[in-house]
Nucleic acid binder design. Structure first.
Length: 276
DNA sequence: TCGGTTTCCTGAAAGC
DNA sequence: TGCTTTCAGGAAACCG
């Protein structure tokens, strides 16, 4: 499941191998994965062909390819999406919905088993429009502070876990890193966001930044589907204290970890250590 | 506006 | 062994 650290790892891999490359051909095998213009594989392919990649950026869980002549490509990996840089002669694997071919003899394969992700072609600045313009601050930027978190959460009855998973509030946090951050901060996932104390916010802000930075350093968490642009897996899943460990002993106190549903998301926490 | 639920989708795992 | 059911989840749509 690609969250901020996984998408950032993919971005770094793509940027190092594809910056400056020119798209020579676009193959769309599943038009519904073209999100803009919606389902229009021909317009998508014609719009991208001949463009040179100037930069590859990330905003939340979105990847943004900037091209010459003022156009952009947005990619979202959804749950099971992969962006793999391969040799131009490489075989197209099952569930490969879009292939971008480049002048360097390389190809970018977009695979997505569960089809929750997609690609979008823009001819106007996507940073000024939905969905990017509605995203909350980057968790690793100075805009995300404990004071901001405290102020933003006032009056909110929603569970703190649902609150930090909301991309319009904070961009990039997903289910894995939310559980891990709440564990480190000692806060129960179902606590109402509006009831967070200033001290809670200080611990939570630090915990979110720490787990994301450690996740990036480890090349992401490889659960089920995720691999980096070069096909390598990340290793942060080995450092998970709670995610995916329901019933296992808490790494801090040894008591069994509890699984609950919060906002429809499976969540694991330690009732003893997460008492706030 | 807010907060909760449903929908999309497929493969792995669990259950029978 | 083989079939059926359940579960996983990001984001948008929908509803009250």
């Amino acid at each position: 499941m690609p969250e901020l650290p996984e998408v950032e790892t993919v971005r770094r891999g793509l940027a190092s191998s594809l910056t400056g490359a020119v798209i020579t051909a676009v193959e769309v095998n599943l038009p519904k994965q073209v999100r803009r213009p919606r389902g229009d594989a021909q317009a998508f392919a014609e719009g991208l062909t001949g463009r040179r990649i100037l930069a590859i950026d990330r905003r939340g869980k979105y990847l943004i390819f900037s091209f010459t002549e003022g156009c952009w490509l947005l990619a979202h990996l959804g749950m099971s999406g992969r962006l793999l840089v391969k040799d131009g002669s490489a075989e197209v694997a099952p569930h490969t919905h879009i292939v971008l071919r480049f002048d360097k003899g390389l190809a970018l394969h977009y695979q997505d088993v569960r089809q929750f992700g997609g690609m979008a072609f823009w001819t106007t600045d996507p940073f000024q429009a939905a969905p990017l313009v509605h995203l909350g601050p980057e968790p690793l930027s100075e805009a995300f502070s404990a004071a901001w978190l405290y102020k933003k959460s006032r009056g909110r009855k929603i569970a703190v876990k649902s609150f930090i998973l909301n991309q319009k509030i904070l961009a990039g946090v997903g289910n894995i890193y939310a559980d891990e951050a709440l564990f480190r901060a000692g806060i129960r996932p179902r606590k109402a966001a509006g009831r967070l104390s200033r001290a809670d916010c200080v611990r939570l802000q630090k915990a979110i930044q720490a787990v994301l930075e450690e996740g990036i350093a480890a090349g992401g968490s490889s659960i089920r589907d995720y691999v980096a642009a070069d096909g390598h897996t990340g290793s942060f899943q080995r450092a998970h204290a709670v995610y995916g460990r329901k019933g296992a002993p808490c790494p801090r106190c040894g008591r069994p970890l509890k699984g609950v549903l919060v906002g429809g998301r499976s969540s694991v926490y330690c009732p003893h250590c997460q008492s706030s």
